[in-house]
Structure formats: C-alpha cells, structure tokens
C-alpha cells in the first residue's frame, strides 16, 4: 500500500475496499448467472432456431443502427459544437434526452409518431408504407436510444481538440468542406469509432422501446433481449444461456472501446 501511495499521491488506502465493493456490485450478479448456466447444454441452447434468428436479427439491426447513428450523429455534433445559433444549449440538452428517458417512454413516443395513427406514420400508412411491426421499426428504436452516445463522444472530442487545425487549414486556403474532410474528420476518427461501437452496444441491448414500438415476432422484430425475455417464461435455461451470450458480446465490445484511444494515440495531433 505504502509504495503505491508514493507513486500515486492522493489515493488513500481505504479507497481500495470501497472499490472492491463497487466492483462486486457489478461482477457478483454475473457470477450468480454463470453459476446457473447449464454448461452441457449451452451450445445447443444458443444454436436453436429461435436463438440464432434472434442473434442474426440483433447483429443486423444493431450494426445498421450504429452506422446510421454515426452518419447522422457526426454532422449533428459538429453543428452543435461549431455553429453558434440561438437555443443551442437547449438543443444539446434535448439531443441527450434519450439517455435519461426510460426506453419504454421512447417506444411510446415513436409509436405516436411513426405508428399507424402517428403524425408521420398515418400519411405513410395511407400510401402503403407501414413501419410498425417491421424490422425498420426495430432499427428506428435503436437509433433513438443510441444517437446520444455518438453525439456526446464526438462533442467531447471536438471540444478537447479545439479549432486551431481548422484555422490553420483555412489560412492555407482550404475550403470549409475540404477542411472538414481532410482535418476535422480524420482527427475525429478515434471518437467516431468509439462512438459507433458504443451505439452498437446500446442498440444490441435495446429492449423497452423495441417491444413497445416494434412488437415481437421471430425473425422480424424479436431481437436477442426480447427472445431472452420471452424464454424466461418457458425455458429459464435457454434465457440464461442467451444472457451469457449477450454478456460475452458486451464484454468484447466494452474491451475494444477501452483499447481504442491507446491504439490511436500516436495518430492523434
């Protein structure tokens, strides 16, 4: 303890037991779940047709949502940070709203907007386009809950980066468009990647907005979390096996986000 305190001034030893408790709060439930995992049947449970369909649907929808979140979220973050306009602070607050909103509330909001009787859904339905109960509804719900992760990551990166390189580029005669593509976006790459991965992770775990807005049908809208919730009723072993699978995917994702900045450290200005 003493030697570590010499290296890390300001870290008292009593912090460590508290840290252990904090880690236990997160890790113990995972251990508890693993203890119930039917090891012998794990493979057969996660490779059943409904499980594989749910996994396939989850991977497809979550990656689509992540890509769309980046394509839409980067311009949004740049606008919010770099362009002065009235009500900017308010706009930033609203963009982050899905973070604190219970997902089921998001689902209701989407339902009353894109549902058959919604403001946008009703005219679409009149021309034969129904979003509710479709895979598009799943992706929409995921984009709704995941967008703030991209925006917040890009915002932080833009703020810590400052504008000196863009100013330099402009003084050398670069157009705003060229400066964005050649200077801003390349320096944002680590943030874009980690933001995209976080959006993917959040989309993969999305449950409340999906079940409220998109419903639950195998191969169409029943993603992994919905399949787990349903299996819990009939086959708890299958629910545990699928939960462990989801945890494994999440661990890989979180680990890759933590590694990203280090990997890109040399490339950053």
């Amino acid at each position: 303890m003493r030697s570590s305190q010499t290296y890390q001034p300001g870290v008292p030893a009593w912090l460590i037991p508290i840290a252990v408790v904090a880690a236990a709060v997160v890790l113990l439930p995972l251990v508890g779940m693993l203890a119930r995992l039917p090891m012998g049947q794990f493979l057969s449970l996660i490779t059943s047709v409904p499980s594989l369909e749910a996994l396939r649907l989850s991977l497809i929808t979550a990656s689509s949502a992540a890509v769309l979140c980046v394509l839409l979220g980067v311009p949004l973050a740049v606008t919010l940070v770099r362009i002065e306009f009235p009500g900017r602070q308010l706009a930033r607050a609203f963009v982050l709203l899905p973070l604190v909103l219970p997902p089921v509330v998001g689902g209701l909001a989407l339902l009353y907007t894109f549902g058959r009787r919604g403001v946008v859904g009703a005219p679409l339905s009149a021309v034969g386009i129904d979003i509710a109960f479709s895979t598009i509804a799943v992706v929409l719900a995921q984009i709704f809950v995941s967008m703030p992760f991209v925006v917040i990551t890009i915002e932080s990166a833009l703020l810590s980066m400052g504008t000196k390189y863009e100013i330099a580029a402009a003084s050398l005669g670069a157009s705003p468009w060229r400066s964005l593509l050649m200077v801003t976006v390349p320096s944002l790459m680590p943030a874009i990647l980690s933001g995209g991965i976080l959006a993917f992770a959040r989309s993969l775990g999305e449950f409340g907005a999906t079940i409220t807005f998109a419903g639950s049908l195998q191969g169409v809208t029943r993603t992994l979390p919905l399949e787990i919730y349903l299996q819990r009723e009939a086959d708890p072993d299958a629910a545990i096996a699928l939960s462990v699978l989801l945890v494994l995917i999440a661990v890989v994702i979180v680990a890759s986000v933590y590694r990203l900045p280090a990997r890109y450290r040399g490339l950053r200005p």
Binding site: I152, T153, S156, S160, A191, Y258
Partner: peptide
C-alpha cells in the same frame, strides 16, 4: 475521457 464518459452513460442508459 470522452470514451469513458460515454461508457458510463451507456451503463446508466441501459
């Protein structure tokens, strides 16, 4: 820190 903040928020949101 941007990635860490976002990760913390991810957990809070989820």
């Amino acid at each position: 820190w941007p990635a860490l903040t976002a990760a913390a928020l991810l957990l809070a949101g989820a």
